[in-house]
Each structure stands twice: as C-alpha cells, then as structure tokens.
Amino acid sequence: MNSSSALLDVQNLRVSFSTEEGTVQVLKGLSYSLPKGKVLAVVGESGSGKTVHALSLLRLLPPTADIEEGHVLFEGKDLVSLPERQLRKLRGARISMIFQDPMSSLNPVLTVGEQLKETILAHRKISKLRAKAAAIRLLKKVGISDAARRYDQYPFQFSGGMCQRVMIAMALALKPQVLIADEPTTALDVTIQAQILRLIKNLQQQTGMSAVFITHNLALVADVADEVLVLYGGLCMEKASVQAIFKNPLHPYTQGLLNSLVSINKKEDLLPAIAGNPPVPGKECPGCPFAPRCQRAEKRCFQTRPPLFGKREHQAACWLLEEKA
C-alpha cells in the first residue's frame, strides 16, 4: 500500500450525523490508499460505517451528515473540498458506484437501454445512434444474452442478478478509474453472486481500473480482493494483503471473524462465535471498540484507543501488537 502509487488516498476521514441524541460520530478517522489496478475490500458488520464511508468518498451523504475532518485525494484533488460542479464531472465518469439493491437504482418507467444510453450521452458528445450501439455492446460485455432485444425491456422484466449486471454496465459505461461497489451481491442468490463476483473481477482486470469492494461477508473477499481493510465501529482494525488476512490475521476481531465463518467442508459441533454484540454508535467504549467483546482485553484496552501497529503492508489496531512494533 504505497501511497505514491495510490489512485485514491483516504486520510483520517471523520464523519458524524446530527441526531436527536446529539452528534454521533460514525467514522472515526479512517485512512487507506487504493493502489492503481487493485481491488481493496472493505469488510465490516452492519453499522460499522461501510456505506457512510462509500458515500463520503463522493460526497453523496445525506444533509444531516458532516465530514468533520479528513481528505480524499484523487489525481491530486481533494474530493472533500472540491467545488460541487467539478465533483459532478468526476462522479460516474471517473469514479462510479454500484449499490446493494439494483432494482431501486434503476428507473422503473424507462427501458434498461434508454437508461444506459442516457448515462453515456450525459458525459460523451456522440450521436444517439452511436450511444445506443455502445449501450448494447456494454450489455453484452456484462453477460446479458440477446442484448439487442433486452435493450428495449423494462427493469421489471429483469431478474435481480440481471439488474445488477445492468448497474455494472452503467458504472462501466464511461470507463471509470475507480469502481466503488457497496455490497453488490448481498441481495442475490449464491449462484448469481458467484457469477457477479467473477464478472466484476474480470472487468476490473480487463480495464485495469481500481475498485473498492464493500461487503459484510469476509468469505467473499478471498476471490476478488488484493487488499483487505477490516472495519469495526467506524475504525480500521486491520489492513493487509488478502493472503495475509486469511493466513496470518493479527487482530483479535479478524481472528474471531475468520473462526466464526461456517464451513461447508466439515460438520462442526459448535461454532467458535464471537460473544456479545456490535457497538452502538455514540455508546461505544472510549478505548478499543472491540474491547467489550475481546477475550484478550486488558485494562488499557477499555481506556485508550490503540493506533495501527505494524509494517505498512500489514497493520492492526490492537495493543497486543505494541511490543512487536
């Protein structure tokens, strides 16, 4: 994770919401860099801040949210302070996003082809006819058979998996440098999920783009990711290469997550679950967010937040690693 070759550099991102109970910070200083041509997986339980992080990269947060601090550097520009007009040119064209629920991201009263064509025309000065041809090519590219006929169909005539393919086609329409995919397969069946993961990986390799792949399921990232960042309570717990995360996880939370994955390969009597429940924003422990559930927690874990320890290629935020640092 050398930041000089980084395409996207996220620095100390802090995001809070104003709620009835006051200001609640949900991202507490997140930093990472996305190398060119690589896939970074952001893994975390629900509520850990994955979506808030994704939305803040492109400043798509709701009005009650506030980016209190931090920078998102992309090609020398800071997306946090970039004027809205310039940011709009980047969204979709240079950095695009796909979401969990493909159905609700498509307009139900327009044909799939129209929507794809409009996306292309919004950013490229070409004729309608050429835009249509480009749209059909894209549908083929994401594995939609009979693309010319499908072009004239409406979203309700597509299955969930096909809608997600269309969303991917839209995201790729303008050949972005970065794709941000927020749980793109969570709503799909396993067989469809496997196809969509392969598709994203193949397209990423063909086009050389970088991707941030967000998921709550650690098992999924083995296939798609080059680097992994484990998020918990709005903080990075561990980041490393995908091999290192699975082979040599350093953080007790990552270790617990890996242990609690249910295996299809053997029958277990009891699963090594992590006890307790994920932190509630605004009510978390001032020290390590994982301390209340951690079997190895010491006194200081509850009091002082551990920084990231370790070498640049493999870092984890746990006091146990302090001596080794």
Partner: peptide
C-alpha cells in the same frame, strides 16, 4: 452447482475453484 458457488474463505484455493456455470 450450488456447492461450487459457495465461497471458500481461502484466497489460494478460492482463486483456483471454478464455479459451475448456471446461465
């Protein structure tokens, strides 16, 4: 086909596996 689609949490093995095509 369903078995082959279940992700395995191991990058080395998972990258070698081939999901049965279900198109």
């Amino acid at each position: 086909a369903l078995f082959s689609a279940v992700p395995v949490p191991d990058p080395v093995r998972q990258k070698k596996r081939e999901a049965v095509s279900l198109t």
